[in-house]
Amino acid sequence: MATGMEKAVEAIPGRPLPHGILLNQCTDVRDVDDEHELLGTTWLALGCQPVNVWRDPCLTDESPGEESPGAPPQKEFHRPVTETAEPITVYAGAECSTMGWSYAEAREHAEASLELGEQEAVEAGFWEHHLSQVAENLTPPGGPVNIAQGVAALEGCLAESYGGVGTLHVPAGAAALLGCCNLAHRDADGSLSTLAGNCVVIGAGYSSLNTGPGGIPADPGTAWLYITGPLVIRRGPVVTIPDRPGPSVAIRTNDRRVLVERTYVVATTCTVCAINISVCPS
């Protein structure tokens, strides 16, 4: 077959994974235009303080006898915790000779690249800059556990600190193991959830990092799982740089460069827990 005679056709289209951080039906993704929201957010945590059971001493049968009963029991008050979320900016750049690409073609290619790959990049940014930095490590001294034990430990950790519906974060490389013990099921809206009712996010970006608390890489044959509270993601508009053809050309090299980027602020609440699991059959 002769070389150099191939016909140029359109690129092969792709789709982001359907249960990733941006496409999961449990994730609250909000498009915002306020640049201040995209610089980071802060709020008073809701649901992180315990709701206690009150036992009225006047309704009990206990008698103080002759001893002094001491101070009467008091109901507890808790100050809300201030939480924050930092911005994650993801981008895709296209470069080619000006003889091969017009500005419109370069821009279209960069925009399509961002659309396909931004979910993975957001997952990697959230994993690296938040999950692995703040998580409580539940891995026992004996080392990695199987995935059923891991999910059970994470959901117990979340329930003790939050009590509401949270989010289980699973690297794509370990996702198939969820089916081994029926750990997740598909809901009517297409999302995945555990038997306890927590959402499941399966992330390609999680799989590419696979690091534990402190950013330590997982040992071969193991993977890290995390659990958090619910997710609220603020998403800014796509920004194209430059926004016109002229400045896209580097005069010295005669190459054209077009960059597109978008800023996200991924927020969650209360405790983040992590555990190391084995991905090899026992």
Rank of each mutant, 00 (worst) to 15 (best):
C273I: 11
T27N: 10
R107A: 13
R79Q: 11
V134P: 03
L17A: 02
R30S: 00
T82D: 08
T82Q: 06
V134F: 06
Q133L: 09
L168N: 04
T228S: 14
T240C: 11
W43G: 04
V232C: 12
A267K: 08
P69G: 01
A223Q: 10
D31H: 11
P140D: 14
A124N: 04
P242L: 05
G70C: 07
P18W: 10
H129V: 01
G117V: 08
G229D: 07
E62K: 13
L225W: 02
D56I: 04
Q119D: 13
E123S: 02
Q119N: 10
L178D: 02
N276Y: 00
S208L: 09
P213F: 03
C280P: 00
A121W: 10
A223H: 06
A218T: 12
E120I: 01
E118V: 06
L138E: 11
Y206V: 03
G190V: 00
G40P: 01
Y206D: 02
V258W: 04
L183D: 00
P140L: 15
Y206R: 11
S113C: 11
V122E: 02
T268P: 00
V265D: 07
P73E: 12
E120L: 01
V29G: 01
A85G: 03
E105F: 09
V53I: 07
L195G: 15
A223P: 08
G246K: 11
T139D: 03
H185D: 07
W43R: 15
C180K: 12
Y162C: 10
T42E: 15
L177G: 07
H109K: 15
A8L: 14
W101M: 12
L131G: 06
Y103T: 05
R186V: 09
G179Q: 02
E67R: 09
I202W: 06
Q149Y: 06
T84K: 15
V201L: 07
D34G: 11
P50V: 10
E95L: 05
A148Y: 09
